[in-house]
Design a protein around this nucleic acid. Sequence first.
RNA 1: GGGCGCGUAGCUCAGUGGUAGAGCGGCAGACUUUUAAUCUGUAGGUCCCGGGUUCGAACCCCGGCGCGCUCACCA
Length: 528
Amino acid sequence: MNDATDRAPAGEAWPFQEARKILARLARRPKKEVFFETGYGPSGLPHIGTFGEVQRVSMVRQAFRDLAPEIATRLVAFSDDMDGLRKVPGNIPNQAMVAQHLGKPLTSIPDPFGKYESFGHHNNAMLRDFLDRFGIEYEFRSATDQYKRGVFDATLLKVLERHDEIAAVVLPTLGAERKETYSPILPISPKSGRVLQVPLVERKVDAGTVVFRDEDGTLTEVPVTGGHVKMQWKCDWAMRWAAFDVDFEMSGKDLIDSVKLSSQIVRVLGGEPPIAPIVELFLDEKGEKISKSRGNGLTIEEWLKYASTESLGMFMFHAPQRAKKLYFDVIPKNFDDYLGQLAAYREQDANARKQNPVWFIHQGKPPAEDVPVTFGLLLNLVAAANTDDPKVLWGFVSRYAPNATPEANPILDSMVGYAIRYYLDFVLPDKKHRAPTDLERAALEDLVKTLAALPAGADAEAIQNQVYEVGKRHGFTSLRDWFKAMYETLFGQSAGPRMGSFIALYGVPETIALVRRALAGELVGEAV
RNA sequence: GGGCGCGUAGCUCAGUGGUAGAGCGGCAGACUUUUAAUCUGUAGGUCCCGGGUUCGAACCCCGGCGCGCUCACCA
C-alpha cells in the first residue's frame, strides 16, 4: 500500500525506522488510526524512565506523521490503577490507614494525602501533572474507568472463552507454587473489595461469569465484564493490546520476557502484537541500574534544575537501544549537543532536518534562535564571575556576544539561569573566605581609597590599571599573589574574574562595600 | 542458566561498507601588565582477539575473550 516501507535509507534516524515498522503493520491490518501506548505502573512517582518512554514514543509519532500524514494518531498514557496494592509505599503519609486496604485496587483506597477521590486518583494526577510539564500531546486513560465502562468487555469474554489456551501459554513460565492457583482472571471480592489470586472453581462462558471461593470460603459468582474482575498483569497488557489494537509500545529491557509472553497471548485473543521495541535501561555513574528506591543516578528534577527539557530530549533521542549512563556530567554535553544541532538545523535541507534530533524534540518546529555561547562556557563563566546575579553574568556574556540580550535570546537567558543554579549548588558551597594578611589588609584599604577616587564612569580598562597600581605599591613579590589574595578574601576562591571587568560590571560603590566587609572580617566563614 | 548491551585516544564517548573522530585532559604558543576564560598549534589509537564476506570492514557474518545489566517471585 505504501512504498515508504520499502525505502528505509541506511543510517536513517531510529524513529523513522520504527515508524516504517508501523506502516508495515498497517499494511497487514489496514485502519484509520494508529494507537501508541505508554503504560504506567501504579506504584511510585514518575521518574526519568517514564519521561524517556513517553518522549521517545512521541518522536516515533512525529516520524510517523511525516511518513503518513493522512493517518490519524493517538498516544495513550494508560495507568494500571486497578492493580491491587501489595505493600504500603514507604514515602506516603497515613501508612496505617493504607495498610488496612492492602489488596484492593488503588482506586478503591482512600487518598493518604487527602486530596483526591482515591490513592489511584492521586497517583494519576501526579502522572498527568508530570506529563503536562513537557507539552507532550497525549490522552490519559485509567484502567479502573475503562474496565467499569465496559471498554474491555468483549475482549474479557474472549479471555474467558480461551482461558485454557492462555493458561497454557503462561503456565510454563511460572514456578511450581504459583502454577497451583494461577488464573489470568483475578476476581474482585464483592465483600472485601480485594483483587484475589485464587483458582477459579468454574467458568461459565455462556453466562460470562466465573465462580470462585471468596476469602470467607463462600462460593461466589461474578461477571467478567463491567469491572468485576481484573486481569493478571501480563494478560492485562495483552488484553489491552487486543482491545485497543495497539500499534506501538516501547518497554525496558527488563520486560523482554513479558513482551514475548504478552505477544503470544494477544495472538490467542485473535489480535496482533504491537511493534514493541526494547530500550536499554538507564545506568548511573558506576554503570548500575537507576532505581528509585536506591536513589542513585539522576532524577528528572535534578536534570531540569540545571538544564532544559530540550537537552534532556537530546539525551533521550540518542541511541535508545544502548545503555546510557545518566549522571551530572552528561548534562553540559547534551545541552551543547542540542545547541549544536539547533544551529545546524537552520543550514540543513528538508531531508537532513528530518534526521536532526531537534526536529523530533520540537515536533518539527525548532526555534530559530542563534545561541552564541555554549553551556560549558557559561558554567565556567559563572564560576569565574563569582556571581548569582543574572545581570552581572549577562554583562560577562555580552563581552562574548555583544548583540545578545535576554529579550532577544530567551534560550541563552534560560541558560544563564541554569548556570546560576549550578553555581549556587556546586561552586558556592566550596567557597571559603579567608581573612587578609597584614600586607593584604593594607593593600585592600588602599584599594578602597583608590576606587573611591576614580572618576565617575571609569571603564574596565582604567579600573584594571588602578587595581594593578595598588598591587605594585604594596610590595607583593608577584602581582599574581595580589590578585589571588583578592579572590581568596573577597570571593572565597583561588581564581576569579578579571578585576577591572568585574568591578565595572558589579559597580564601584558595591565593590568598595564588598572590600570593606572583607576587611571587617564579615566574609570569613560565610557561605559554607 | 536464558536474554540484552558494551569493548574505538589518558577519561567520557561519537562514528551502520569508502582517508579513524569530538569534548575534556596533556604539551607548546598567542592574547590578557594576575588568574580563569578565549584563540592557535600539537602529541596521543593493534578501533578487544581470531577467522570470513568484500575492490574495500571499527562497521556485516562466524567463533572466542572480557565487562556490565537484566529475567527467572510480583508488577
